[in-house]
Nucleic acid binder design. Sequence first.
DNA 1: GATGCTAGCGCC
DNA 2: AAAGGGCGCTAGCATC
Length: 576
Amino acid sequence: MNETFVLTRIGDSVRVDIRGPRNGGATAPVTVASSDLPTFVAERELDAEGGAGPRWVWDDTTRWYPSLLESGVRVRRCLDLRLSHDILRRSPHVDPGLLVGASSAEWEAMDPVELAGPALFAWHEHDEPLDSLAEFDRQQAALAASTKRDPLGLLLAAESSGALVAAEIAHAGLPLREALHERMLTTLIGPRPLPGARPELLEQLLPVIRGALGAPDLNPDSPKSLLRALRAAGLDVTDTRAWNLRQLDHPAVGPILEYKKLLRLANANGWRWLDTWVRDGRYRPNFLPGGTVTGRWAAHGGGALSFPAQIRSSVVADDGWKFVVADVAQLEPRVLAALSTDLAMAEAASESDLYEGMVKRGAVATRKEAKLGMLGAMYGSTSGEGGRMVTRMTRLYPRAFGFVEEAARAGERAEVVETFLGRASPAPTGRWTLALGDLPADDAGRDRDRRKWGRFTRNYVVQGSGAEWTLCWIATLRNLLWQLDGAGELTDRPHLVFFLHDEVLIHTPAALAEETILAVRRAAAEATRVMFGTFPIDFPLDVAIVDSWAEGDSRAFLLDAEDEDPDLEADLASPR
DNA sequence: GATGCTAGCGCC
DNA sequence: AAAGGGCGCTAGCATC
């Protein structure tokens, strides 16, 4: 039976309201002691073996699933009412009145529970527990009445699966060898310093920098005093950004850049990071599904989503285990081609490298131009080579480039834009939205803000739809991984241990690594089918079986590759 | 002493 | 004249 179980916590017990697949109507609720819940859930999952499985409806995955996982219980499906409330409330295709009811304000204000890290403390539940059944019924009614019922329903399911993945990643943790990390730190910045002291190798760079600038008291940790010292030394700079310093020809530049790089490592992923976020060979950040407006995940704790390439060599699979690392090549351009049904761009995307595909078809002269043009279209470049390429490529791919252009125009009109499945952008609140169409021609500030919002909505439709594809990917993947020939609980089988926007890491027994690769590919194909149906678009994956994340890092490879410019992103990020 | 902001840099 | 999106994190610094 694929029944729906709606869980509401009441004191030390849980009220379970059961909705059958056909009757839709209420049956008498069951009351389960909280301590018996894992058994109750496990039995229902077992009963439904083979089918899609029961669906567990709860207020918030972070308040339910971690303890189930601790008890060794995995679920196949859930509906996270907190996340779905947020999506439905923002959708212009949902009647907001249907979502209003008891505790509306509490549903709006609910935050996820942080499970990892130094701030861990017990959360206080509401005195009056939120009634999940009432909220579920409201959401179902709102969904049923929506003109975008099917895509929104898919989005809610994918978002909820993402919440399950996030909890499972937190449960399993990313394998990270403290000893390796410490050795790397010691080599690069010196042994663990005393509290408050500068690491040894930074200390050694200090006199070099001070000497070269003739500033004996300079503290290069302070951008302000560094800027002062640079200008006092006769250098024409307005900030201390590494990219700008690199343009200068001065003996202080090399040591300063080296210092900044090591300081960054020490601050972001040094000894304190290790102490705080890594325990018993596992790094456990808090992933927050739906944590950003576009639907990409956010993360708290240890900078999980900016895990530097430099330290990925510390991420090593357990003995007898492997990592399967997979990332999507040019996710967002491919999503854009499908969003806009641009057949010419989709045709170029049949190549494993979309940009090369454009070059091969004579659209542009070089891979770099293709990339500049695509990124320019998705981010809103108007000047420089990016801007020029956008103009040229608009003629070649009018549907795709027109699609993002229209999203930008809509944003500038203060309209809400949507992702492919219907996640709506927030309404703008800036002053420029007032008296729209009645702007003084010389109001440069408002004009700038309006264009800035247009760049946001332009990017929103692509970034948000890309996030939806990856949600569908990992949602399918977690189920396929469970069906592999494993046994035992989650961490005894192939399981996801990291998710980075368009890249996944799976920790798998070595014997199942090849099968895991097949699962990753099948999941990608399924995500494409579910999202885009028969539209001819490919999402090729780069997949590798590795012992260390560093081996599977395409950037590490690209640094040696002749045909790729590793500084291209930096070029884009810099003025001129 | 706590809090909020900025600069700068990491990731996608 | 110049004009790219989304994030998190840290230290320094200003402020209360």
